[in-house]
Design a protein around this nucleic acid. Structure first.
Lengths: 345, 345
DNA sequence: TTGTATGCGTTATCAG
DNA sequence: CTGATAACGCATACAA
């Protein structure tokens, strides 16, 4: 077992000082040609690599960024993560991921753990519980310490930092308009229980489109589903007892589940009912029929967040100018597939 | 902006030495009660937290583990990652993820980056390219340096280390037996192009079941699909020109795609053709019909890998006993759903 | 009971 | 051209 070699080993072996070795390996002009060559050759032979931890301690920069997301199995977050990871890696940063599991406590613990020197900045989407509690002190503490923070998707106005979101309201509005244009009039909304934040904005877009076309807004046409658990019965009951010709769902899972229920009850998609979901993932592409879906461009979102964060990290050290926080809005786009094909009647 | 406070700050402020502060905060018996209280109160007031980096440098342990996977958007890897993250976090470890993107070069670069002190051990699944190249020097270097390594799912016999895999051959065998027991005789296999390793083992199980029941093994009944790209035409052609009454697919994406193709061509699942896939993910649960699928227990796999790794990390430092490497085999289980309901004829 | 010195691996400054 | 020294933040063996 050949342990990692350090500057000290090289110095001792070659009978020079540590600082000479350090400089020689950086190809410093100060060092004589022959000494440099000798040292570089030795270093290469023993495959010397500087120790990241020591460099971090010295530079007070870790080249790590911390990502805290509510759930890694969720396709949207996975996609965002991919965007982050790719961009960050290109820039020489590594990514430490923590999953909050929608729990406030875990989010706090994870943040504190990472904030003590492990990372140069955070990218995160708030846990559901955090949004409910409306307690953002852990975020504020971090920013007050001067650690850059970028929020994406699940954001809050209570914290001053960079943000990346999509135009949820507008995207939902456009989706519903599309449904109306194809002759649908009885349009239901399937959303999350106690729908917050993102879901709420999508609901607003839904309402706006209905209003604009003088269609009635009926709370009875809104189905609220628990976030992670199954609730087939509630959904079945909903569709059984209502006359519905189109549905907007706040995610693709709800959409695909509801399409299944509706089809099993003998109705046809899109002939009898059209469906549009959010999150254009693998489910949308592979369901039968394929699902029209709002693409949230997760990868772009992640890349954008990473770019904003790294800019801030690398600027931070230069000058202490007035902090400017930006909110980037990414335009969602509707991907039309079979579930909205053709007009009604 | 209140910067992070250090032992030195506290020492200066309270006019004591750094080591006194250090000991006081560890509640050492050496320090006088009153000094301890004074120091602890001050530390709490200013929310002192030890710097992770400094501790890492001192202890030569980072409490980070590195995970390198080919793809984070793939459901199976995501699930494994979740198992790793949960277990590691419980044990006080953070997880740094790098995505190799199936590329040999990226895998090497990522490993080298992390191996220079950033992590205490690796968990990884080999990139497709790495398996093709059969070049594992980067893995060997790491293990030679004494960095613990656990491989999962995509493993190789060329590297001496801990491994976690599932009984792919047996699972495929059982799946095909089940198909045969329900009266199916013309059973196709859909696998990855140049099917390696995992896919190869599943193919072996498929062959074994056929042989055991004296069914013909026909290369023409095997469809090879590119890993990530679409190839609808090839699949359509395959199913159009063959008489098939059951299909085993090496992943759920292939299965769902093929079910779609078959259904669009007018055949019925499972009445005319039964389907079984691997990777029991969201697609299997939400496709129409729902897909019978081999559950690889990704989360358990991740947890197991993390447990093995952390055990090794924490033992490593004790004694220099003879290294023992284990291979844990996780039993896959077939989850039966609509796509295999009932017998043929 | 408290403080000093040393080291973890590296870099930067300054002296020789 | 080369080397000694200090510093990053912390822990600890050893003095006082």
């Amino acid at each position: 077992m050949k342990r990692k070699i350090t500057l000290k080993h090289i110095a001792r072996e070659l009978d020079v000082s540590i600082s000479t070795v350090s400089k020689a390996l950086k190809n410093s002009e100060e060092i004589g040609q022959d000494t440099k060559e000798k040292i570089q050759a030795f270093a290469k032979l023993y495959n010397y690599r500087p120790n990241n931890i020591a460099i971090s301690l010295k530079n007070k920069r870790t080249k790590n960024i911390g990502v805290i997301i509510p759930d890694i199995v969720h396709h949207f977050f996975t996609t965002v993560f991919r965007g982050i990871e790719q961009y960050a890696n290109n820039k020489g940063y590594n990514v430490i991921v923590c999953v909050s599991d929608e729990s406030f406590d875990k989010e706090v613990i994870n943040m504190e753990m990472l904030a003590n020197g492990s990372i140069d900045g955070f990218i995160m989407a708030l846990a559901g519980e955090t949004q409910l509690k409306n307690d953002f002190n852990h975020l504020k503490e971090v920013t007050e310490q001067g650690i850059p923070l970028v929020l994406f998707d699940r954001v809050t106005e209570d914290v001053q930092c960079d943000k990346v979101i999509i135009n949820d309201e507008e995207a939902a509005y456009q989706a519903v308009k599309k449904l109306i244009a194809s002759g649908r009039r009885k349009i239901a909304l399937v959303t999350t229980e106690g729908y917050l934040n993102v879901s709420a904005k999508r609901a607003e877009g839904y309402f706006r489109a209905l209003k604009e076309h003088h269609l009635p807004i009926d709370k009875d046409m809104i189905l609220e589903l628990p976030y992670q658990k199954d609730n087939e019965k509630k959904s079945e009951e909903f569709f059984r007892n209502r006359s519905i010709d189109a549905v907007l769902c706040v995610n693709e899972i709800f959409a695909v589940k509801c399409m299944g229920i509706v089809q099993r009850s003998g109705k046809r998609v899109p002939d009898d009912i059209a469906f549009i979901g959010f999150t254009d993932g693998i489910l949308s592409r592979l369901s039968t029929p394929t699902l029209s879906s709002v693409d949230q461009h997760g990868e772009l979102m992640g890349e954008t967040a990473a770019r904003m964060l790294i800019e801030k990290i690398e600027r931070d050290h230069d000058q202490e100018e007035e902090e400017i926080f930006q909110t980037r809005i990414i335009s969602a786009t509707l991907v039309e597939r079979e579930s909205t094909l053709g007009s009604l009647k």
